[in-house]
Each structure stands twice: as C-alpha cells, then as structure tokens.
Write a protein that binds this DNA or RNA. Structure first.
Length: 582
RNA sequence: GGUUCCGUAGCUCAGUUGGAUAGAGCAACAGCCUUCUAAGCUGUGGGUCGAGCGUUCGAAUCGCUCCGGAAUCACCA
C-alpha cells in the first residue's frame, strides 16, 4: 500500500497540473498490473475523463507522459484503453527489496492486543473444531506480533456446569477408582469416556421411563441420573468438600491431557482463565446498570437488557434467583481484562454459532457506558465438516485432535520414506521431519480456507503433499536453503552490486514484487483478521519461485551478477516464507 | 418467521477499496530427472461466478427480489 499511496499522490498532482482541477485521493485507483500486461502498477483513468474531456487513450497517454517526465523511477508506461500501466525501473524494485531485507515491518502503531482462543470444555477431549480454532488463534497472534503489537494470548476453560458433573457422576458410579495411570490413557480421554457413559446410561433410563408411559420431556427431567447430576452441581456450588476434591482431581487429569495436545500443536497461552473463577464476575456491573437505568429489572427480579432497538431481542443478564448466566461472566471478564492489560483491542476466536452472543455482549457493554465496547471483535469461524457430513459426538464421527495429528505424522512418515526422503537419517531426525511435515500439512490445509466459511475436511486430501499444500511450501523452502548453503559466495550478494544493468526477466521481477509487497499483505491481513490471505499469498510466491527454479541453473550461469541476483532473490524468498510459516 | 453467513471448474478452494481474456490444486490425459531436492515443472480439456433485475464507462465483487445450504434467535454454555 505504501507504493500505491505514493502513486496516488503523484497522480493527484498530475491531474491538478494538467487540467487545473483538484481531486480527492480516494478517487484514484491503483492496482498491481495483471500478469498478462506489461507494467508494475495500473492506474485507471476512466473516472477522470470528465475532467480531461478527452478519450480514455488520450487522457492516459497525457498523464503517462507527465508522470514519466517527473518521476525518474518510472522507466516506461503503456496505455491500453483507459488503463495506464506504468513500469518502475529495476533499481527501484531492488532497492525496495533491500529495504525490507529483514522483513521488519515499518510504520507501526504498536497496540496491546488480547486474543482469546481455544476455550475448551473439561468434559471432552479436543477435536477437529478446536484445531481450527487453535490454529486460527495462534496464527493470528503471530501475525499481530509480526506487526509489532504486544499480544497477550489467553484461554478460557469451561470447567464447571452440569456437563462437568455428568462425567464426575459417571466416574463415581462406575469408575471403580480408575485413574489415567491405571487405565494407561490420557486424562482428557478418560474423562470424556465417562461423559459418554453417562449419556448412554441416561438415555437408557429415559427410554425406560417412556416405555412406562411417561412423555419424552418429562422422562428427560425425571430420570434419576440427571437428578443426581443436578444435585451434584448444587453441592459443588455450595462448596461441598468431597465433590470439590473430585472435581479438582478429574479436571487436573484433563488439563494434563490438554497440555499434551497443545504441545503437539505447538500452541501456548500467556494466561489461562477458568470459568469456575470468573462465573461470578459481572454481577456488580449489572446491578450498577439497573441503578443507572441502563438495564431493566423485571417483576420476577431477573435483569434484562433491552436490545430491540438494535435489532436483537431482550437479553437476560441475571436470573430471577440472582445467579449469573453465560453472558454475565463474559461482561465481567471483558471489563476485567480491559483494565488488566490496558487492551486496545480484544479479539475472541469463537465459532460462528456465537455471533449473536457477541453482538449482545458489545451492546450491553455499550449500555453500561463502556465506550471501548467496539474494540471487542469476534473472529467467528465456520464449522468443519467431514465428507460424511457434520461431526456428531453421538454417532462417534468426531475427529479426535490427537488421533488426527498422529495420523498426519504416520502419513508423513509413509510418504516420505516411499519417496526416499528419509534415507540415511537418524531416528531423531526422522521424527523431527515427520513432525514438521505432518503438522505443516494440517496447519496449512486448515488455515488456507477463509475462516468465516464452513470448510470440508477430507482426511485423504489433507494428507496429500502435492499442489497447494503446506509440505509443498516447506519443500520449496528447504530447497532454497539448500541453494543458499551451496552458494558459499553468499558474502558477495550485495544490493549495491545489483543495478540497472541487469535485466530482470518476468519471473525474477514478479518474485521481487511479491516479496516487496509481503509486509503490506501481512499488515492488511492483520487488519482484516484473516490468516488465510497470507497462506494463499505465500503459496503464489512459492509457485513463482518454483518456476524460477526450474527455468534456470545457477551453476551453469554465465555471469556473476546474474548469479548474485538469483541468490539475492532466493534469500529474500526464504525469509518471506519463513516469516509466514511460524 | 426475524437476523447473520455461504453459493465460483467434476471435487476442495483463491479472487485485494467494483476493472482488462475469472485463477490454483486435486482428479483425467500427454510430456519432462544432463538442471539447486521430480513433495517438482510444462501442456491439453474442463465455467451461464446459484437465478433474475438494478446501479455505471465496467459487476464474481455493490443494491433489491427470489432459489439452495448453514448458524442463531434460552433464566444452556
């Protein structure tokens, strides 16, 4: 955008000088020139025909001539219909590239950004949906960091509630004192099994009641197991020591399991919140809100926010018995975090089923008088579907995170050894490689899709290493590194030695342009909160580089400057790729 | 029913604030290991951008109306 802005500015001056009329810079449209045409940037002159009172071709030619005369870096221009394609000199691009050599992003207004992601429940192991969440959250936080922001990554664990009591109750009844160690099982898996067991037994009871003539709804409420689970939740909230101890023990098993999965994925958090500690937050704020008249207290003593003027409904914030609901807690934590981290921006990575929830959250905060309510953004992502349809825990079609990651490793190993990529390596090296490749495949496969869209996860395609995949990018990166390793004359690659005397062919120039624009893309993606832009961008860069690689042989190269240029490009391509692979 | 999101090649997906002849990969077919690593490269075929109307010099992109799919509209979380 930096170059485009510069061109826009020069264009405005040109219009003023040629036609003595001033125009708004926003009217100027500058794009990168399409591949099929000659040029680096294209200015569209159609909107200015009324000012020039000439044909599109004449107008574009006039402007082109003026720009070329006044900007020395423009080497030539071409006019096609109303499109003015201008070409910058090679030295212009090479200098830009050199400026960005360390991929340090300039022009930063550093911000404190808080990003919440993952947010698991402690009654089930992590699954494919969590993987999408985790990868988006982690990747976005890396993008924001690369932009020079101060990023705090937080997790909010849902560790309380009736669903947690269900697995606890099942363990109490049928667990016979089993532990992850005794069962030789990950803690989250073990607890998840008891949750499933509860559901199974509960359904049995319900079916029995129905066959005894009860209505379905009544049966679901009257089944003994659910009554016991509710009683357990009541005891937990009352601070019953025995229940509390069980809860702590089982949750600690789960956390150990989660930690393993996070480690496997390479994901970390700066702070973890537990809902058991935050669920009471927000009450005071809401009561204050009633006092100021922002919120409504109803006859049954429940407290609501009237959001109808914003197109939403009435939202309950405190139950009639004074206990808090989900959103109460979120109001409290938002206010707390805002203070704690002095956050300029708070991003929540949460599935699109909660779009309504976050709209309501922001509006309630607004009503409560927090004018920073709009610094909250909800990055919602779509569901991950399987070729057979949606994942359903009841039907056992949920893709478990650990299983999936293991499968990626196994496939990476199979494919790599079939291709002979692992020949002559030590066990340790092999393990390292399949981890990088397997995870790279999974991460890229998920991140390349626009988060807001529902996506289809086809296991066989995700572990394909050809084409638009993570391993292809890694492969290219590895090859570039190999080129650089072999080029022991690296020290003679200096931009000063590369000048306009060297002609750039189309591919060389296209790669340089792409790398120069890389930082801007990163910036834009950070603004749009969308890692998939970078993923797709890097793929196109890598693809160009691959052509480049196949079209030339450095070792056979006739002149030393050309060889330097190619090494120079390789070096920058490598750093651009590396930057985006973290 | 209200609100939000999605619909682009057989399949999975890109497509920058409206721009030029709509792009990749997979799958199919035909080539390429004298090159820096073939996890690659080249070529061929494949499209009514869900449909229609409108806005304008110009629409996959913006607006409206339909059609199809998803999510949501709890004193659940």
């Amino acid at each position: 955008m930096i170059i485009e802005n510069y061109i826009c500015g020069e264009f405005c001056k040109t219009i003023t000088n040629l036609y003595s009329q001033s125009i708004d810079i926003k009217q100027v449209q500058v794009q990168k020139t399409k591949k099929e045409f000659n040029g680096d940037f294209t200015i569209n002159v159609f909107p200015f025909l009324k000012i020039s009172k000439k044909s599109p071709e004449q107008t574009a030619t006039e402007i082109g001539n003026y720009l070329k005369e006044n900007i020395s870096e423009i080497s030539s221009f071409e006019v096609i219909k109303g499109f003015l394609n201008i070409t910058f000199s090679n030295s212009f691009w090479l200098n830009k590239l050199n400026k960005h050599s360390d991929n340090v992003i300039e022009n930063n207004k550093s911000q404190n950004i808080l990003i919440e992601y993952s947010s698991p429940n402690t009654n089930k192991p992590l699954h494919l949906g969590h993987i999408r969440n985790n990868l988006i959250g982690h990747s976005l936080s890396e993008i924001l960091k690369a932009n020079g922001n101060n990023v705090t990554k937080v997790n909010l664990v849902n560790d309380r509630g009736i669903h947690i009591c269900k697995s606890m109750l099942a363990w109490q009844k049928w667990g016979n004192g089993i532990t992850p160690e005794k069962a030789n099982k990950k803690g989250d898996k073990l607890v998840g099994d008891f949750y499933v067991l509860f559901d199974k037994e509960y359904k049995k009871q319900v079916a029995e009641l129905i066959s005894n003539g009860k209505l379905k709804e009544e049966a679901e409420k009257k089944a003994e197991l659910i009554i016991e689970a509710r009683e357990m939740l009541r005891k937990w909230e009352a601070g019953d020591t025995e229940i509390y101890k069980l809860w702590e023990t089982m949750n600690s098993w789960v956390y150990k399991g989660f930690e393993q999965t996070y480690n496997l994925l390479g994901i970390t958090f700066d702070k973890t919140y537990y809902e058991s500690q935050t669920y009471g937050l927000g009450k005071d704020e809401i009561i204050k809100g009633v006092a100021t008249g922002a919120l409504i207290k109803k006859e049954d003593h429940s407290i609501c926010a009237d959001l109808t003027s914003d197109g939403l409904d009435e939202k309950v914030l405190l139950r009639s018995d004074g206990t808090s609901v989900y959103i109460t807690q979120d109001i409290g934590t938002a206010i707390m975090r805002k203070k704690e981290f002095n956050a300029n921006k708070m991003i929540y990575i949460v599935g699109n089923e909660q779009i309504y929830h976050f709209q309501a959250l922001k509006l309630v905060l607004k009503k409560l008088g927090y004018n920073w309510y709009d610094t909250i953004s909800h990055l919602s992502y779509g569901m991950v579907e399987l070729p057979e349809g949606k994942m359903k825990s009841r039907e056992g079609t949920v893709v478990d995170a650990d299983d999936l990651i293991q499968e990626m490793f196994d496939t990476a190993k199979t494919i790599s050894s079939e291709l002979g990529k692992l020949d002559g390596l030590t066990e340790k090296e092999i393990e390292q490689i399949i981890k990088i490749v397997g995870l790279g495949a999974l991460k890229y496969f998920i991140l390349k899709v626009d988060p807001k869209k529902n996506m289809l996860f086809n296991p066989t395609e995700s572990i394909d290493f050809n084409g638009n995949t993570g391993p292809f990018i890694q492969y290219t990166y590895a090859r570039i590194k190999s080129v650089l390793r072999k080029a022991n004359e690296l020290n003679i690659i200096t931009p000063e030695k590369i000048n306009d005397k060297i002609e750039l062919n189309e591919i060389e120039k296209s790669i340089i342009k792409q790398i120069v624009n890389y930082n801007n893309i990163v910036n834009d993606a950070a603004n749009e909160l969308n890692p998939s832009i970078i993923a797709n961008y890097i793929y196109s860069l890598v693809k160009d580089y691959n052509q480049f690689y196949h079209d030339y042989s450095i070792l056979k190269e006739e002149n030393i400057e050309k060889r330097n240029l190619r090494l120079f490009i390789s070096k920058h391509t490598a750093s651009a790729i590396k930057n985006s692979m973290n």
